[in-house]
Amino acid sequence: MNVVPERLTAKDYATDQEVRWCPGCGDYAILKAVQKTMADLQASRDRTVFVSGIGCAARFPYYMETYGFHTIHGRAPAIATGIKLANPSLDVWVVGGDGDMLSIGGNHLLHALRRNVDLQILIFNNEIYGLTKGQYSPTSRVGTRSPSTPQGSVDLPVSALAFALGCGARFIGRSIDTEQKHLPEVLKRAHGYRGAALVEILQNCIVYNDGVFADITESDVADDRQLYLEPGQPMLFGKNREKGIRLNRETLSLEVVTVGQNGITAADVLVHDEKNKMIAHMLALMEPPEFPVALGVIYCAPEVQSYETGLLAQVTEAKAKGAADLNKILRSGHTWKV
């Protein structure tokens, strides 16, 4: 008998649990985008696992009608690695905030990326510690005033995506919580990538860091501060797509140019090559006011064997070499009879 599976809608990926983020939190928008992504992919609810650490973002799995594991602070990538090794057929997503992933869990993120475990890793970056009531975070800009830095923070922030590239990440992307069309597209690309895929999502914490991305997201500046990357397309932005990113071949750095001014033509504007790691690094680091923020898939290296595939192939190989007989192994080597 052929049963035509029912098409799942975004709602089918929502649990009956009351969502407990603050009203107006950017996490709601991300949840909606992820549920839409799931529906677009017609993802199997019982083959999908969301793993998180601790923090506001880490409550995410409770709201997804899939398997979910809310673990401990910073360790989600390590637990997800174990899940993937135990059952590589599962579709495993890791969710965490900037503190979870880049502070206490920085080491695990590093190694999940460099090992190239087939995971989708989402960092909800709001540049603040929300759940612990508003301390500055490793992505907070210098001078951030918070309960723990009343005179302003003095340490330099980390760039999630530049860090990821340094770790050997082979897929990095970025989007914004409220970008309900763009975000699912980036998530789908990450999902399709076999290997570790990292997506940074700029997320507004309305309570402790409201408007921290206003210089990027406000409608009056958005056109000039957001660069949407498309593979094979010129890096153009601005209200009339008159601005572009050019590689200054003398200083080996990027610069913003205006097409039609100072002899700049469309040919001068960089065309996005997802496989170019050097340019990807420069794109990841672009920030206002000098530059727009790069959005979309910034870097996507050709796929290589993922970690769990390689490691489990060794298990398969060992199994193929002969029957696993422990009784026999115990009796091999030097034995004697009494």
């Binding site: 360790r75 637990i79 899940i83 090794l85 135990a86 080491n107 695990h108």
Partner: peptide, 28 residues
């Protein structure tokens, strides 16, 4: 490994136990 043993040399002690917990969660 022929006995279905996956050994994972983790980045630290915490990741080692966490991967084991992930393994148990997933049925090993």
């Amino acid at each position: 490994k022929q006995f279905g043993v996956t050994t994972f040399q983790a980045e630290d002690e915490i990741a080692a136990v966490c991967a084991a917990i992930g393994g148990s969660y997933a049925g090993q």
